[in-house]
Simulated assay, not measured.
Amino acid sequence: MRARYRAAGLSEAELPAEPVALFGDWFAEAVAGGLGEPNAMVVSTADGEGRPSSRTVLLKHFDERGFVFFTNYASTKGRQLTVNPYASLLFPWHDLARQVIVSGTVERTGRDETAAYFRTRPHGSQLGAWASDQSQVVGSRDELDRRYEDLARRYPEGEDVPAPANWGGYRVRPEWVEFWQGRDNRLHDRLRFVRTEAGAWEVRRLCP
């Protein structure tokens, strides 16, 4: 199965000086285009032996410092990031014939930033962060539901729910960001912003 892509593409002459500005433009277009969860991204990490794993996570914030998501620090990705603090992010905006790939180092956000975000989550999602020992084996669905129900009794709607100590944010600080625009005849545009040793951004065009 093959999709037909567009004739118009991505030109170096149209690029801003930094990738986060172009990402912001593309993200806004994905939102305006009605894409389902345009902030959904595939996060790829690897363990200490280089064995990779991937999963879909929601982007919660981005700026010139990097791209932020939240998770359980004891999850598979959390354990892998502890021993190998590098990650790749992929935004697959297929309906726009676009992809963005971010690759860089990863660090935890501060607890203040984690707590501030946690307060914005729906009450049920707050309880879910406590109920789920993410990536760990659970005996049954009933056991998971019982954990949630116990927490719902302890923290009824309207009660402040603290952020779990083993739950928080990660910030991916990009070393490079690639913008992929589908083009006719499979001659896609691939423009990669690469951070130089001096901290500036250099743009490189890659063959599709």
Results as ranks from 00 to 15, higher is better:
Arg146His: 12
Glu159His: 15
Leu144Lys: 04
Pro156Gly: 00
Trp130Ser: 00
His94Ser: 10
Gln99Asn: 10
Phe70Ala: 08
Arg121Glu: 00
Val57Lys: 05
Glu157Phe: 07
Arg111Glu: 06
Pro122Gly: 09
Leu89Ser: 03
Thr82Asn: 03
Gln99Phe: 13
Arg111Asp: 02
Val57Ile: 14
Arg111Thr: 09
Asp63Gln: 11
Val83Trp: 00
Ala116His: 02
Asn166Trp: 02
Glu64Asn: 09
Ser125Gln: 14
Tyr148Leu: 10
Gly110His: 09
Leu151Gly: 11
Leu81Val: 05
Leu81Ile: 09
Val100Tyr: 05
Pro122Tyr: 05
Ala115Phe: 04
Glu64Gln: 12
Ala165Arg: 08
Gly48Asn: 04
Phe62Gln: 05
Arg153Cys: 05
Glu113Gln: 08
Gly78Arg: 05
Thr120Ile: 07
Arg111Ile: 01
Leu96Lys: 06
Thr114Ile: 04
Ser135Thr: 12
Phe70Tyr: 15
Phe69Gly: 06
Arg119Lys: 15
Ala152Arg: 13
Thr76Met: 13
Val83Ala: 10
Leu81Gly: 01
Ala116Ser: 14
Leu151Trp: 06
Asp133Trp: 01
Ser75Ala: 11
Ala131Gln: 10
Val106Cys: 14
Pro85Leu: 05
Asp63Arg: 10
Glu143Cys: 02
Leu127Glu: 07
Ala152Lys: 13
Asp95Glu: 07
Ser125Thr: 12
Ser54Gln: 13
Gly104Phe: 05
Ser125Tyr: 09
Ala165Gly: 02
Asp160Met: 09
Thr114Asp: 15
Asp160Thr: 14
Val83Gln: 07
Gly110Tyr: 07
Pro164Val: 12
Val137His: 14
Tyr86Glu: 14
